[in-house]
Design a binder for these strands. Structure first.
Lengths: 340, 340
DNA sequence: ATTAGCACTCGCGATATGTGAGTGCTAACC
DNA sequence: GGTTAGCACTCACATATCGCGAGTGCTAAT
């Protein structure tokens, strides 16, 4: 069953994938001959198709229809047949330009990445902000807002700001807070949530309150499996014939509404370097049944975020891979520049 | 044409709206008699229906179908016929509880509002973070991150944090930055972007760089018509029969993907106090054709955010209004507590 | 190994038909 | 005058039927 494919069988599979990705219509032997391989007879192509079908690379929805690549067929295509795509110089310029335009606004470029990926690939995109396994304090600030309350701001190891309200029983003075901030920053830099919670260097009630508030914030960040998530391009997905039926459309929309999905996808992508392609049963999330995911991590050190394109298995893999590859590189560079 | 409706005609309109909202099926005279008004004959109801139809409150899709409320009919219903709904004590408790659970995480409760509104009304929800017409500096912070770059953090009048990267030609020392921060906070508190840009109190290159960076950030906030926007419940909308067709589904999905929509809706809601109901042609955004919007502002002073429920005109208006009413109150209280 | 020939399959769109919920109208009724 | 029974009429919707044609699988010839 699983014996080697001949040259021509591989070519036929490649053609079937290319044609089906482009048209979403089952590909018949006639179409192949007409468009791709003049000089061979349809019957010959049909014979190869039978081989491909019995090996599980293609199938037909019913007897008198053309062939459709199976998940296994797409996997084989991506691994052995596809010639790697490359973004045009113009596109690369545009990407770099867009990212550098908003270079200074840390919050926005993750959202830009999602929009960009969606537009360039014609599919939906998921992007998560970088996350560390364990939050470490990088810098603390306290701002008095009302008489007895202050805003506690923590810059954590992953380079993101987090905030929490601190309410105290006594009136607060900004100078007092500044002093505490200075001491805490000197002493607690690089510490994790538990270490801060157990730290016994707090001398006053207020210091203890700040310590507890900070520890609580960091524990929340640790616990919270939901870093900030961006997505884009759901409407592009709904335009694909795969999601023409109402159930499918609702299913995918619901899937995109739960932020946990993006987080789980990101967790998988963060494990290894490089672009990862998941097709069919390789996509382990049941809500994404029938979808393919192309993604990669970005960032550095142990601070990784993830970018991904989600679409039907009938997808321009070459383009998706090239886009993910390039955007993740640009973001990694930018990230290095931004937070050392 | 526009003469007063009789008691019974009003009752019939109310029944048509109630039944159509519940079932989404055109309402016939038989159904009305069977379910709501035993003792009257279908012919009588039909006569009233003719009156309602010629006054423009109802119509039928074709001759031999039941009646459907028109936009005008819904408007009349909301203004004259509907008995105001009220959330149950349990629901109120739940809302307050959920908001207080995350009370201290300023970033999350706007998102919670969206999810909550969507779930409680069965429609999509839009929520914008509070926004001021003109950004005013409340507090500044600078954190050295790399040798020549620092993170500039500004707490602005609307109570939200904004950040921007500051890159300098000379190495930066945190103590130096702290001094600048102290001076800037004393001098520039309450100032707007232009005032800061024109401020000539900066003495060193670094101070000038900080001033320019801060002014740039605040101008960006001013310029940027896009405050942070949350949405939820799109999948609930797609489950409604109004969006069963592919075009409708794509149209509404695309509408929700552009953040400008939420901003424009919010701008309209911020103008007046109280719950606002927009139906049919009262909804001025073409992408929301055929939709109704129930929304209100929240916050205080000149710092308003907006919450809104977006659904088909066939909507449980009583419930939507009660929910918006209550949630906006809770959020306004919370807001007052959080940022004075 | 390749190809021409051919009978066969079956989804799809077009057409026809029956059904029934619901209407509008008229005339009788209270 | 408002209300109601009676009745012919309308029209979307569901179901059944049918022809078309793209595409297959098999066989036998090259």
């Amino acid at each position: 069953m699983d014996r080697e494919l001949t040259e021509r069988q591989q070519a036929v599979l490649r053609m079937i994938v290319a044609e089906y990705v482009a048209t979403a219509v089952p590909v018949g032997s006639g179409t192949i001959v007409r468009k791709y391989a003049p000089g061979v007879s349809p019957a010959t192509v049909r014979n190869d198709m039978v081989t491909l079908a019995s090996a599980g690379y293609v199938y037909h929805p019913h007897t008198s229809a053309g062939r459709i690549p199976s998940d296994k067929g797409y996997q084989y295509y991506v691994r052995h047949l596809m010639q790697p795509g490359e973004l045009s110089a113009d596109e690369k310029r545009m990407i770099v330009h867009l990212f550098h335009q908003i270079e200074r606004d840390l919050g926005q470029w993750v959202q830009l990445a999602a929009t960009l990926l969606a537009q360039m690939t014609g599919n939906a995109a998921l992007v998560t902000a970088p996350r560390v396994a364990r939050a470490e304090l990088q810098h603390l600030e306290l701002i008095a807002t009302q008489e007895r309350s202050a805003l506690l701001i923590a810059l954590l190891g992953e380079g993101m700001l987090h905030q929490q309200l601190l309410v105290h029983s006594e009136p607060l003075r900004q100078e007092e807070l500044d002093q505490i901030v200075r001491r805490f920053n000197q002493t607690l830099r690089g510490r994790a949530a538990e270490e801060i919670a157990e730290w016994d260097g707090a001398r006053t009630d207020l210091e203890r309150a700040v310590r507890d508030c900070l520890a609580e914030l960091m524990m929340r960040v640790d616990r919270q499996a939901v870093p900030r998530v961006w997505q884009a391009g759901l409407s592009l997905l709904l335009a694909q014939p795969e999601f023409a039926s109402r159930e499918k459309a609702q299913e995918i929309t619901r899937a995109f509404e739960q932020p946990t999905l993006a987080v789980e996808v990101a967790d998988a992508l963060i494990e290894y370097p490089g672009v990862r392609v998941m097709i069919g049963d390789e996509v382990r999330w049941s809500v994404l049944r029938g979808c393919a995911v192309v993604g990669a991590r970005y960032g550095a050190d142990r601070r990784w975020g993830a970018i991904a394109v989600v679409g039907p298995t009938r997808m321009r893999y070459d383009r998706a891979i090239a886009t993910i590859q390039y955007v993740s590189e640009v973001m990694t560079d930018l990230w290095a520049k931004l937070c050392g």
